[in-house]
Design a protein around this nucleic acid. Structure first.
Lengths: 243, 243
DNA sequence: CGCGACCTTGAAGAACGTCAATGGTCGTGG
DNA sequence: CCACGACCATTGACGTTCTTCAAGGTCGCG
């Protein structure tokens, strides 16, 4: 596939250039970060809840999620993380985390020691700012989800998530032509949207019958983008994507 | 204890000392921030959604909330802000906001120009870090709410919020003896918890009958803290309060 | 006294969950 | 190549939670 002029940190560079232009020196400093790559299978816990990690996890490939477990086997997914994301960046500043980080698909991540990142941010305050902004965007997405869980119906919530994922994936070259790979089980989608997998299934079925979208074999196809945006009350501003 | 500086910025100093000890110079720098105080009535919009403010709002007194409006008159409250909080701190780093900021009670706020805050953070990197951490704690609270809206029943959610507010208010001297002023209408509580005011009412009634708590005349009294913690699945770690 | 804002309560219905059974797909091993 | 099992999607019947609608009731305040 790739002609591989792409070093492992290319995704991180792309993420950060969303917020500022990076100088050659800054890009090189990112490339030179010591990356301990790790391949994980679906379902693997990368950072267990309650731990105090000493390294940050950069997603190179695959889908990760942050989640919390409750009694009676309940799970809520707090965030979906795609290549280029640093899901546990906040642990650079607050030691312990209350949520877990797990792979939803086969995935590869790069583990970067906190000290290396700290050295990077003291050397390049521009990068420090850019990293903070990624945290703010994560928080903005979380707010959008909060609104959905609190005040939107299953139908609206699902439409909203499908729209969000399309734009986020398109921004990293993993979606185009109103179509993308959605490698999540309906159970994972349910834990994301605060529903049951049964109801997720019925909702997708209904949306297919309305000719909004199709989900088959892990591929999601949007048939009517405008109608979907409308159905989800979707306004992409919060993603802070270029354009 | 402290000789209690009762200047307007005392609340901000207290908030920040949760995360680091402040030197005399740092405290004085905070006191010297130009504060434009403003008295607002309940329901007043302080920062309308979609605007790009040039100053931050510090809560001196009263309750504020960040919220989003949806079609059909729906509202979701994203955060409750108490004295000492800086609800729109993130606008120091991301220009526009997608949510609104409003007073829920009569309240006084201090408006601090962004440039003054930026000067403060460049002069005292320690304060910059402390301010960032308040944002991370806000995000942690938001995650807890997300879990509640997604996966907890009305009963659990309500218990959880009552516990959270007790600890947050106690930390700023506004709660003690398992009792505090809760000056929110049931409609506001409903918009916080993703329910209807009718159901909020029934939930509180049920909890009173279980001898968990009483809400009367704007005063909430917790009769059985342990049982309430249990009912809400409440674990206070995410608040990052001392002790 | 009367009005507005809020709380309270009942009855009916919609949205979503639970339980359970069936079937599809894919990888693995015989 | 087929059989099997694991995992996931799908569907139906039924239950629960929460909402909606509507009607008082309470309280403070002009």
């Amino acid at each position: 596939m790739h002609p591989e002029p792409l070093h492992a940190m290319a995704g991180l560079v792309r993420t950060l250039t969303r917020f500022t232009d990076l100088t050659q020196a800054e890009q090189r400093a990112i490339q030179d970060l010591p990356a301990r790559p790790r391949l994980v299978g679906p379902g693997v816990d990368i950072v267990p809840a309650g731990s105090a990690p000493v390294q940050c996890c950069l997603v190179l490939d695959g889908w990760l999620c942050r989640y919390r477990l409750l009694s009676a086997g309940r799970r809520q997914i707090l965030a979906l993380h795609l290549p280029g994301d640093v899901p546990d960046l906040q642990n650079l500043h607050l030691p312990t985390r209350d949520d877990g980080l797990a792979a939803l698909t086969k995935a590869t991540v790069a583990l970067i020691p906190h000290e290396s990142l700290r050295a990077l941010t003291t050397a390049f305050s521009n990068l420090a700012t850019a990293l903070w902004r990624t945290l703010l965007v994560d928080a903005a997405i979380q707010r959008a989800w909060l609104v959905g869980l609190g005040r939107r119906s299953a139908h609206e919530r699902t439409a909203h998530l499908v729209c969000e994922l399309y734009l986020r994936l398109a921004a990293i070259g993993l979606a185009a032509d109103h179509r993308y790979r959605l490698p999540l089980t309906q159970a994972a989608l349910a834990d994301t949207l605060g529903l049951t997998s049964v109801h997720i299934n019925r909702t997708f079925t209904a949306m297919r019958e309305q000719n909004l979208l199709t989900l088959r074999g892990g591929v999601l196809t949007i048939h009517d983008w405008d109608a979907l945006v409308q159905a989800g009350g979707f306004d992409p501003g919060y993603l802070h994507l270029p354009r």
